[in-house]
Design a binder for these strands. Sequence first.
DNA 1: CGGGTGGTTGAGCTTTCTCAAATAGAGTGG
DNA 2: CCACTCTATTTGAGAAAGCTCAACCACCCG
Lengths: 239, 239
Amino acid sequence: MIDAHLKKLRKRDDISSEEEQAIRESVGAAQTVPADHILIRRGAELTNSTLLIDGMLCRFKDLRGGQRQITELHVPGDFADLHSFTLKRLEHDVMALTPCRVALVPHERLKELTERFPHLMRVYWFSTNLDAAMHREWTLSLGRRPALGRIAHLLCELYVRLEIVDLTRDWSFDCHLTQTDISECVGLTPVHVNRTLQELRKSRLIEFERRRVTILDWKGLQRVAEFNPEYLYLERRSR
Amino acid sequence: MIDAHLKKLRKRDDISSEEEQAIRESVGAAQTVPADHILIRRGAELTNSTLLIDGMLCRFKDLRGGQRQITELHVPGDFADLHSFTLKRLEHDVMALTPCRVALVPHERLKELTERFPHLMRVYWFSTNLDAAMHREWTLSLGRRPALGRIAHLLCELYVRLEIVDLTRDWSFDCHLTQTDISECVGLTPVHVNRTLQELRKSRLIEFERRRVTILDWKGLQRVAEFNPEYLYLERRSR
DNA sequence: CGGGTGGTTGAGCTTTCTCAAATAGAGTGG
DNA sequence: CCACTCTATTTGAGAAAGCTCAACCACCCG
């Protein structure tokens, strides 16, 4: 059940079998969540963190006018709110973009886990720092990349992250994001996302139909995205 | 020397005198850094974290075309690269925007400190999560706020963060950011920042001259920024 | 077959950008 | 104290990217 999570951790560091065992014992039973359900509300007092088993979650914030900005997408193996362990409440919501399976880990368990295994503490600290690195890359996207590059970059990131947890096949992956979802990730309007996706298709960089993205030209997509995966810290080393 | 740092920590949690002592013993001698100097280069192997004593630092990333995006500003009391403790290298640069004084803390010391004081571990973990929360707010700014709101928001954030470390006086603070620096924070061009600042001045929300910002109408500035300080976690509680 | 959601298109508009030049200010050497 | 230089700010005019609004289409599912 937490295999994707272990894959993600082991992509960046060694996890001993003792640590693995301790993690497994900390994770609660899986529960299902329908699409569009808000799992975490801004401001709520939190005592658990949420591990995504299956499906896609997002973190989002919005302005008074209702304009929404997604700040991160979550794929299986991610904690959606590990940061709530120290923040205690969050300043953003967490919502299911598809039907999901999630499992809760009580902060109490995380406290024991991190005190008993200082190395795991650093692994999980690393994990929240990785989220922050993705935030910075998105900041760069929104601040400086044109529409085409923003969307291309989002697809590159998703591809690499899904590959780590074995959710890609032949340069393609399931992607239940609507064009409106994408627009909320990249800070554009749905209409402009639509036209930009057409451009990506027309230049034969991707296909995107029936909820599946196929990357036709990875080098080309990377180029228009100026995608450099260094920010995903894809190297196994002792943290 | 690390008073600002302790103020920042104690704004969000209690720090015992024993912990304070341990922190003090971990911090190296202060060194000065000239403006525009790059302290940390993307990709470099890091074994220290950098505590800002005085001046202003920024984290930035850039695209091939040279377009630069600042992802965070640092004020006295901040660690500029505490996240390097677990990341080991960074995917962005850290640069001095003004002449600065900084002090280094070896990762070895941080390891001892966090293993000896699990509470301090969580305090510093919190601190990197706070950086991430600021990143998310900037993502919202760049994705959804218009130029006026973005700049207003930046000034609100700076004001609150500087107030915590006693660097404001009568609704004003020293601000050595050039309009180009600001444009690199908010994802606009310097020209547009210039016109937008004029608008903020004309509406009597701020003054900004001779490197000093004065907030004339805090409520009004907050309103156009849609500034809600919840993302700065300004509450003291046990982490 | 009907309703709903999500994708597509067109036309006109707004915000922000680009480029180029002028102005102001701070610091330096004579 | 005065030129001189360098950097930062300001202004103008035209262009481009992305937005708005409104309608239409396609597919899915019951």
